[in-house]
Amino acid sequence: MICDNSEIILSVQDLTAEVDGTQILKGLNLEVKAGEIHAIMGPNGSGKSTFSKVLAGHPDYTVTGGTVTFLGQNLLEMEPEDRARSGVFLAFQYPIEIPGVSNLDFLRVSYNSKRKHQGLDELDAFDFDELVQQKLDVVKMDPAFLSRSVNEGFSGGEKKRNEILQMALLEPKLSILDETDSGLDIDALKIVSNGVNQLTTPENAIILITHYQRLLNYIEPDYVHVMEGGRIVTTGGKELALELEERGYDWVREEEAVGAK
């Protein structure tokens, strides 16, 4: 799916960011083109989740340097809701429970805010219901989940499926899946991966953040990046993930140390 003249969706240069005064990202570079799937792996604390939150605009994280360009626009200047409406989607590692707000209402308001942003008419409740019923198939979700409060009382697997349902509805240009595989049993992993695969197109791009190679058996990445100390230190093809699985991250650290000499 990689072709050199594809549209550049995301370009990150020398990105540095901190939370509560602690520097987490220390000069991160990444370019993502349309049609590509990038996996970002790395040990705990290497800055993977921070990177996803910085891209989505979480208020706790402060960007201290570098640039992020999304579809030619300065992403860092955009409010979180505008990033979302423009096509940045973050599938949360721990999807948030919203008591009292029905999943269906939440999905509809979210979907319509994007349509409004695109200058399209909002869908009324009936048309939207029809649309959402089709999308349920992507993750084999029971329609009963639509009338429940957002994520409230959902199992870990159900929450992750709900995230992918939202992704299916919003059709983002860039989806960042933050450890979407964590806490999933093998059946749920297959359903979620299958859902993601159905949603990949030559026009959009996906960043998968994961600890484990296992997810990459189901969603095949074009690139695998290894993060360490707030930077991407190694990039390779999908075989890199297999090597990591076998040899652990220490191997990357050693390689890097050798390279530095």
Partner: peptide, 12 residues
Amino acid sequence: EDQLFYFTQRGI
């Protein structure tokens, strides 16, 4: 704050 961020990340 996390609830609000969840909404805003969905464009609300």
